[in-house]
Design a protein around this nucleic acid. Structure first.
Lengths: 119, 119
DNA sequence: CCTATAGTTCTATAATCGTGGAATTATGGA
DNA sequence: TCCATAATTCCACGATTATAGAACTATAGG
């Protein structure tokens, strides 16, 4: 399940920002270079950050021509959340009840991350 | 909101185990010494781990006689989950839908953490 | 083949984290 | 007041992590 890797990957302001940005970028994701430009980060530094998020399973990548496209893996996020609620918190009502409220509210607001992603 | 501190606190097998144990121990929590004994960890090492979880807001403490009782803060856990779903994932259906299933299932199973907590 | 572009891997260095021994603080009881 | 117990803070040191320069790999186009 490797949930520690996921927590560890998100426990870094830069990586968390990149991840949020990728979530907002949607399923089509973005090229590594575009992300680097958006965050004004050297390509190699960002590359290692992406690799860490990738190893944690939070994002996926595929090559398209010269570019490598990264996109958030929503299924994996749901999996991590599932771990906290169930395996970790034993589905306790104190956690589940407020969560229900949020989950039912569904796709809504979303505060803006570092920079605005495409589309 | 300090969500990074929470991720960082849980991104450590020992601390995650202690946290899970405290969740299972319920709202009454347990004394630092009892936790240390349960995990066979030196008191000072465990104390720093508890301090980190505490600073992250995931657990709370209060003194009772010579003991200091630690207990999981469920409201805070719900808050962290809320951040991931809303502020981070923008309440995207890909995340919310499977989460709903888990949340509605409510108090159920819970896999066992390192050692069995009291009561 | 040559060159430009897109990313990654290698590497070194600085910074942060984790652990546990020793000293310290707080409480309760004789 | 003195002692035992409960826990924390101080400190040192090994281990891990973060950053970014330089070198390397892969692809597209001429």
């Amino acid at each position: 399940m490797r949930v520690i890797e996921a927590f560890s990957a998100l426990a870094h302001s830069g990586r968390l920002a990149v991840f949020r940005w990728l979530v907002r970028a949607g399923p089509d994701g973005a090229a590594a270079g575009d992300i680097a430009r958006a965050f004004n980060t050297p390509a190699n530094t960002l590359s290692t950050q992406l690799a860490i998020l990738s190893r944690a399973g939070l994002i996926r990548s595929h090559r398209t021509g010269r570019s490598i496209i990264y996109a958030a893996d929503f299924a994996r996020v749901a999996e991590v959340l599932g771990f906290i609620v169930e395996d970790c918190c034993g589905g306790s009502p104190e956690v589940c009840t407020p969560l229900m409220t949020i989950a039912t509210r569904g796709a809504c607001c979303a505060a803006d991350a570092a920079t605005t992603p495409p589309q």
